[in-house]
Design a binder for these strands. Structure first.
Length: 623
DNA sequence: GTCATAATAT
DNA sequence: CATATTATGA
């Protein structure tokens, strides 16, 4: 059923009926009650103006009305909008307007085929014609004006498609462009959840589709994404790490610094924490009072529970050298040996065994083990060896283990000490349960070396050091009410070498008390380091959060398609009967399988998935 | 269901 | 203009 629905959605098209007079419009609306979803009307019309029509339509059919007019005066516009018009379009309508119309139409109509009724004042038919023509020619899917006089047709390679609704005077139009599905991070996260749920080996488009339950998403869409994802996995599996060449390529990263998409992640982190700290969007990676169980005091345990990690597998040890940043990190090469150390029953401050959580998370692709990358494992080894009193300053940089205050700083200082052409510090304070209670000081462009870590009083938590070959970012959190930090929250580092980038590791995985592995395949961007300039700019296929948290106070803004998607954790934490919908271009999504059925609270807590931003795209910053 | 590749977007 | 992403057809 769902699939048929989706199928229908894919064939969704606009059915446009044009009439000359408002009353005709009303007549047809009455006649074809339920067929229409949207009315587009001129403002100025003979018998009844657009606003009156809108009122009538609203009252009688509860349909949104878009008013168009060449009248640009603010007065008129605002009056129309206040009067209840869904949109006001100044004629001649431009591409953006039409896009909005389309989006709006799609948004309000989520399942069935979409109909747009265009009502045309007889006075100025040409305007509407213009609209319709552009609609069909330029932009949105298929939209056309069908009446006896005019027929606009896209020069498309596609010929007519079947109309989903029959109506004598309604015809369907060739599609000019099919809107692409945008794989936002949240959507992708959902995809990952589905994969995780199904199991990678059994994950095929159809099943994924079912599991994802995103309305508007087709099997093909998923197949395509899956294909990409598999390619990605393959690369990861083949190239366990990055070659050092990336690390040594350039003297000046600045030129290559920001442009590539992956880097965005880091920028987002910065952005988020420097600008958007009003909401504690970071959820500690661990639920309850558990902490990641890292091996004793040994970094290597983290990386490879079963093996001794090569001594050079830590970026911390030789950031400039031949080290492979994460390359050997998962030296538990067999997929089924990959374990997450994130589950732990140990409390903060408690000594832990070499590794507490043994969560196999093996993934396979066919017969081949897929090595999933668990950056949080490698990157977040900051939590260990909390003595008594607990040591502080143990978070932040990738995989750094601080043994004590001083040396901890020193260790971390490998990063910090590395040429500091740029150090940014951003402080964020978080309560023990992860709530953000304020931001700390921020220092920009200082050459001062800093440990970048809080000792409880100095919340310099984010540290971004740069050297000729790489950039390292780290973010940590100060848990204000405790004397030690970063128990639960920390961001790890991002690296960029030449064109490549190690994204910071968002909190991703967390498990449940029981052994159900909930770990999602997190972002393994390390392969990028091996690619060099000619390499493909790969995507990060893990849970991530690129988008700024949605802050309060903007509720009066009309959500755009693609915005305002629910974040997964929100959905999960508060299951609702009205699950928020993903709004995909060709249809509006609706979750039919609540994710909370798949997930556990702890897991959810660990996730910060609210990203509505298209993957690999930088979210727009909030003004 | 997958793969290669065309189409489209950035 | 090149690259990346998504759609599509075999």
């Amino acid at each position: 059923m769902l699939s048929s629905l989706l199928t229908d959605n894919r064939n969704l098209e606009l059915i446009v009926v044009t009439v000359k007079k408002p009353f005709d419009a009303l007549s047809i609306l009455r006649l074809k009650k339920g067929l229409f979803d949207l009315v587009v009307s001129d403002l100025h019309m003979p018998e009844m103006n657009g606003m009156e029509l809108q009122k009538q339509v609203e009252e009688e059919f509860k349909l949104p009305v878009i008013i168009m007019s060449s009248d640009e005066s603010k007065n008129v516009i605002s009056r129309s909008l206040e009067g209840g018009a869904a949109f006001y379009i100044v004629k001649p309508a431009n591409k953006v307007d039409l896009k909005n119309v389309w989006h709006y139409a799609v948004a309000i109509k989520t399942g069935n085929s979409l109909s747009i009724k265009e009502i045309e004042g007889s006075r100025e038919p040409s305007y509407s014609s213009t609209l319709v023509e552009r609609l069909s020619l330029e932009d949105v899917n298929s939209a056309t004006s069908i009446n006896d006089e005019k027929r606009y047709r896209k020069n498309g390679r596609k010929e007519e498609r079947k109309s989903t609704k029959d109506d004598q005077e309604v015809d369907s139009q060739p599609a000019s462009k099919k809107p692409k599905v945008v794989w936002t991070n949240s959507l992708h996260n959902r995809f990952l959840l589905a994969l995780n749920h199904i199991g990678l080996d059994k994950a095929v488009p159809k099943r994924i589709l079912e599991c994802m339950s995103v309305r508007g998403l087709s099997r093909e869409n998923i197949a395509s994404h899956l294909q990409k994802y598999r390619i990605f996995l393959k690369k990861v599996a083949e190239r366990g790490g990055c070659s050092s060449k990336n690390l040594s390529g350039r003297d000046d990263l600045r030129t290559n610094f920001a442009p590539s998409q992956p880097f965005m992640m880091f920028k987002n982190v910065q952005q988020e924490y420097s600008q958007r700290v009003t909401r504690a969007s970071i959820q500690p990676g661990l639920g309850g009072n558990t902490i990641p169980a890292l091996g004793g005091s040994s970094f290597r345990n983290l990386h490879s529970p079963n093996q001794q990690a090569p001594s050079n597998n830590s970026i911390l040890q030789s950031p400039y050298g031949q080290s492979r940043l994460f390359g050997n990190a998962n030296s538990a090469n067999q997929a089924n040996q990959i374990r997450s150390g994130l589950e732990s029953n140990y409390s903060i401050g408690e000594n832990m065994p070499s590794y507490g959580g043994v969560i196999p998370n093996g993934l396979t692709h066919g017969t081949r083990p897929m090595q999933m990358y668990h950056p949080q494992n490698q990157a977040r080894s900051y939590l260990q060896n909390f003595g008594s009193p607990p040591l502080i300053n143990r978070f932040g940089a990738v995989g750094i283990q601080a043994t004590n205050y001083g040396s901890g700083v020193g260790d971390i200082g490998i990063i910090n000490n590395s040429l500091n052409t740029n150090n940014n510090y951003v402080g964020i304070r978080v309560t023990t349960d992860g709530r953000l209670i304020g931001s700390g000081q921020m220092q920009l462009n200082t050459n001062e070396l800093s440990n970048g870590f809080s000792d409880g009083g100095h919340p310099c938590l984010m540290n971004w050091a740069r050297n000729g070959n790489m950039n390292v970012a780290s973010i940590g959190f100060n848990i204000a009410s405790e004397n030690y930090v970063a128990r639960r929250g920390s961001f790890s580092a991002g690296f960029e070498g030449a064109n490549q980038f190690f994204p910071p590791t968002p909190f991703t995985s967390v498990y449940h008390g029981n052994s159900t592995p909930m770990l999602l395949p997190p972002p393994p961007p390390q392969h990028q380091l091996g690619l060099g300039n000619g390499g493909q700019n790969d995507f990060v296929f893990g849970l991530m959060n690129n988008s700024p948290p949605i802050l309060g106070g903007n509720s009066n803004q009309q959500p755009q398609i693609g915005e305002g998607e629910p974040n997964v954790s929100d959905m999960l934490l508060e299951p609702t009967n009205n699950p928020p919908a993903y709004q995909l271009p060709q249809g509006v999504a609706q979750m039919s399988t609540p994710l909370h059925e798949l997930l556990t609270p702890d897991f959810l807590n660990s996730l910060h998935i609210d990203d509505n931003t298209p993957r690999n795209e930088q979210p727009s910053s909030q003004a």
